[in-house]
């Protein structure tokens, strides 16, 4: 469980990036943190594994305060995949890249071997085991970065902008992957701008603006509130745009799921035909 209590954070340059943020993420939850550039999303999640320590307030991971321990020991429970895979890839082969963290955490050689095979298989990278990560495409590098974190099986997984630079098929794979992880009881936090991706996943949405949380709740309630999204520089998902513009009193406004939208519209059409 992640507990954030009235956290303030200022960078050395004096910029106050977080101005009193409180948040609880329960075990097994799937949370999307959204908001415009500079809202403090990445700053907030960097507190979850202790990369940043709050200037005021408290962050606890399973009742351990992040100021009382090291990033390395927090990282065992909190896996953090950075936005740009090029900021972490450095090994000669994909295999070694994945082994890096496992060695840091002191796993036995046989365990490392098994974990590598498992992670490569999970992300469809088995064929690249002996390839240099620098030879891979952008999407594949991103998956290697993800595999290198998943390999130690952290309970909490943080993904910073996971959909950037991914084509539709990869996004769909990522979505199914996240769902699978969640069904296995892992806690997942994503930071993203990708409103359609969030609409499809339908997680709990935390909306941030200027270092504060401005909304926290179900995706279908927050992503269908035009006034709220307007001030956060986010557009409504396409489904929600249709439902707000349709002006049919019998249709609900808070719809973001494609399947639900299809059912509602079909029902409406059938009723009209019958009349």
């Amino acid at each position: 469980m992640l507990t954030v209590e009235d956290v303030h954070f200022s960078y050395q340059s004096g910029v106050e990036a977080l101005k009193g943020v409180s948040l609880i993420v329960k075990n097994g939850e799937f949370v999307a943190i959204m908001g415009q550039n500079g809202a403090g999303k990445t700053t907030l999640v960097k507190h979850f594994n202790g990369l940043l320590k709050p200037t005021r307030g408290k962050v606890r991971v399973d009742d351990v305060e992040t100021t009382k321990t090291s990033v390395a020991s927090l990282a065992r429970n909190v896996g953090f995949v950075f936005q740009n895979p090029d900021h972490q890839l450095f090994s000669e082969t994909v295999e070694e890249e994945i082994a890096f963290a496992l060695k840091n955490f002191g796993y036995a050689p046989e365990v490392i071997e098994n974990r590598i095979t498992w992670a490569l298989n999970l992300l469809g990278l088995t064929q690249y085991r002996k390839t240099s990560p620098f030879m891979l495409s952008g999407g594949e590098r991103k998956r290697v970065a993800l595999a290198s974190v998943l390999a130690w099986d952290p309970k909490i997984l943080i993904l910073d902008e996971p959909t950037i630079g991914q084509d539709h098929q990869q996004k769909e794979n990522l979505r199914q992957f996240i769902m699978q992880m969640q069904s296995q009881g892992r806690t997942i936090v994503i930071v993203t701008h990708d409103v359609e991706f969030v609409a499809e996943c339908n997680p709990r949405v935390v909306l941030m603006r200027e270092g504060k949380i401005v909304a926290d709740g179900e995706g279908k309630d927050i992503l269908t509130d035009p006034a709220l999204l307007e001030v956060s520089s986010i557009v409504l998902p396409q489904i929600a745009q249709i439902f707000t513009q349709l002006q049919v009193p019998s249709l609900p406004k808070n719809v973001i799921d494609i399947y639900e939208a299809k059912t509602l519209l079909l029902r409406l059409l059938q009723r009209r035909q019958r009349l």
Partner: peptide, 16 residues
């Protein structure tokens, strides 16, 4: 700035 980000990314993978 980039060096700082890279350092963070590797620390998140248990580098001390």
């Amino acid at each position: 700035e980039e060096a700082q980000t890279i350092m963070d990314a590797q620390k998140a993978r248990g580098l001390e």
